[in-house]
Design a protein around this nucleic acid. Structure first.
Lengths: 344, 344
DNA sequence: CCGGTTTATGTAACCGGTACCAAAGGAGCG
DNA sequence: CGCTCCTTTGGTACCGGTTACATAAACCGG
């Protein structure tokens, strides 16, 4: 009965605490590990009396099954990953929230990775891919070939707000029509000379907004600017262009690629004595909380829904859905406030 | 050489893709798994020529070591968890960001869990605890006994913005002094009748702010309200109390437990024709982005630093630090804007 | 009272790595 | 030339679960 005392190289034990394993439980309950495992998973056929003994042992030993051992045996992580550039915007948080909520409901943990423009981002993503059953990637955070590599390894990927990639699902929000509706609204205000602030090269979303913007202007026979004014996504980036904008002669309105740009620009302009919307009108994009209080006209995107949908798409893939990749487009909504000027 | 053909029950293969393992690499390179493992970990002493063969095999087979197998063998997850109530505030996102940034630098992945007031939160936390090397818990998201249970299992825990628990480190921000400085500032404005909006029972932070608020009023010989006006943390909660506040006779100022409350209240009051700061002054707490644009006087907390510090504390514990639990308190900063009235 | 099921449990081979221990082969030295 | 010592490498027992397969016990109608 009490075997293996002499031969065994005496359980190597790490400095850390000795965690109690399924075999300890089995011994304590006087059954085999198989039985404990079965009792653990509730399901199968275990005699009530036996189950009781096992439960008692589990209780007595305060046993918790190791997720690691379980995952290895089941060959699934029961976890999803999500990659985004930087949580700092008030914006990504919503996406993550929607994602997490659905994933949790589906019994999957969520691993987050923020790339912060780190050089090592690519490796970090690959590493992450090895820890999850599926991965959501937001925007231009990761190089195409890295995403392709992940897909190629068989890990389902959903892209969010990003150009499509062979073999991966995607969710994004509508941009072209929304940008056109912004422009149309501004035209109704009587604004004619419009500038666009944001770098179309930097993001698919911005590129589409820029395209929609130009298209609508052209269609209306209004003047179409040659180029967008390049800028990042932060308030600082908006503030930085204020001087140039003034020096170059103010347009009637500046359509900004996101709210933070518009807000930063508003403040910087005010410092130069230029009023919004009196001297120049502005619009943003995203409808962050601050936009409400700043009276910023903007476009609302269903960020939380986007995260939620990504999580559901991944779940379907992980569960074996082999159908053609889907590419969902969520509709957006123009939110008119005061920054575009008094209603005509 | 080519053994085990007849006896082996022929590798059970799951429906999924057959991932390439370290043994495949070993076979391909004509070496043992031990050698591959050594080559993999870079370190050890492997003959350059051998290493080259192994690398070639890895390349050829597009092998990626399984994090699962590795974690199981190393008995570490290389991952930390963080639990918070709800990401939706513009506020928690910062904490998570700081946490993630440091954790990533230290080579740990981050698992997030948002409890959303779900009933199953406790089990979810316990489950999470089984997947990580350390856990950060924000606020009153989890019952004390659940946290204790996690600690008892030997998983290091750091509490954020929460009352201390035996055996766990904690980080929080200073509240009492800050609340007093808010009150002092308001007294300088000449405000005397002050109300406090927020539920002290709901959160340790709020309780401390309420205490600091009362203390400062008492010290100044001003009228001390019997009770705080209970409210949650959302804009809606702020809006909801507007009517009662007006009906009960407006105080000189309402000190709110967070910015969202103050902002929601501002809007609701405006709808009733009551101006801030003309008819009533307001202050918030957190200094979210919207507070800047709404001109809200508030208290800034170093949220990102809080997350970062929690991650560092956990790292120390995981690395074997057995010293007494630390309880860090981060200093906060009064940010004066227009909502408290014109300067005297 | 017996062969045939059905139910309950045990045995052991995985999952995919890590690392201890031993052995092989080469170099250096008296 | 024999003998240590050191560098490389291989064999294998883990880590902590799951589960296919075998086995034993209990049940059943004829």
């Amino acid at each position: 009965m009490d075997n293996a005392e002499p031969k065994s190289p005496q359980r190597r034990r790490t400095p850390g605490r000795a965690s109690v394993t399924i075999r300890d439980v089995a011994r304590h309950a006087g059954v085999s590990v198989a039985t404990v495992s079965r009792a653990l998973r509730g399901s199968d056929l275990v005699h009530p009396a036996t189950r009781e003994r096992v439960d008692a042992a589990i209780e007595a030993l305060r046993f918790t099954p190791s997720q690691l051992g379980r995952s290895l045996a089941e060959r699934r992580h029961a976890a999803n990953g999500i990659v985004f550039p930087d949580l700092s915007g008030p914006f990504y948080a919503e996406v993550v929230l929607g994602y997490e909520e659905v994933a949790a409901t589906l019994g999957r943990s969520v691993l987050i990775l923020s790339t912060h423009n780190r050089d090592s981002a690519d490796e970090m993503v690959l590493e992450l891919a090895g820890r999850v059953d599926g991965l959501a990637v937001f925007g231009r955070t990761v190089h195409d070939d890295v995403v392709a590599e992940v897909v190629q390894r068989g890990v389902p990927v959903v892209l969010m707000a990003r150009t499509e990639i062979e073999g991966a699902d995607s969710v994004r929000t509508e941009n072209v029509v929304a940008a056109a509706s912004v422009v149309d609204h501004l035209l109704e205000h009587g604004h004619r000379r419009m500038a666009f602030l944001g770098d179309p090269v930097d993001s698919t979303d911005v590129a589409e907004r820029w395209a929609g913007f130009r298209g609508a202007l052209a269609q209306a026979g209004a003047e179409v600017p040659e180029q967008a004014i390049p800028a990042g996504f932060k308030e600082d980036d908006g503030a930085r262009v204020a001087a140039d904008l003034v020096a170059g002669g103010l347009p009637d309105v500046v359509v900004c690629a996101n709210d933070e740009l518009a807000l930063g620009l508003t403040v910087a302009l005010a410092e130069q004595g230029i009023e919004v919307p009196g001297d120049v009108a502005l619009t943003g994009w995203d409808d962050v909380m601050a936009a409400r209080y700043a009276g910023l006209t903007t476009v609302r995107q269903p960020m939380r829904e986007m995260g939620a949908r990504a999580a559901r798409m991944l779940d379907a893939r992980i569960s074996g859905d082999r159908s053609e990749p889907r590419h969902d487009v969520l509709t957006t909504q123009l939110v008119v406030r005061s920054s575009c000027g008094p209603h005509p």
